[in-house]
């Protein structure tokens, strides 16, 4: 019998569809009976959506400036 803690351990595998048929079935059975785990799975899924939607992962402008400079130098060196 799958307990809530066991389900929490494999929750990401369930979300990403990485479980085998038997395990997937026992997770589904558990979720039918357990509201807390339904909530956990829903929240974990939402957390992953949140990371995907998180667009503020931008490069450091200072690093970008340095790279631009180096690339421009190397390009010019090639031309000459």
């Amino acid at each position: 019998m799958l307990m809530c803690r066991d389900l929490a351990r494999i929750a990401s595998d369930y979300i990403d569809n990485e479980l085998g048929t038997a395990q997937k079935l026992s997770v589904k059975m558990h979720l039918m009976m357990c509201r807390d785990c339904r909530s956990f799975i829903g929240n974990l899924r939402a957390s992953t959506d949140l990371i995907q939607a998180h667009s503020s992962y931008k490069p450091d402008p200072e690093l970008v400036r340095r790279i631009d400079e180096q690339v421009a130098q190397a390009l010019n060196a090639k031309k000459n």
């Binding site: 307990m3 909530s39 939402a46 949140l50």
Partner: peptide, 28 residues
């Protein structure tokens, strides 16, 4: 931290408190 939220019998002692009604885009 999450492991501490289960009772010895393997059930939630402190279950997830929130309900996600908003989608991720609007949360962001």
């Amino acid at each position: 931290e999450l492991a501490n939220r289960f009772a010895p019998n393997g059930r939630w002692a402190t279950p997830p408190s929130l309900r996600f009604e908003e989608d991720a885009e609007s949360l962001m």
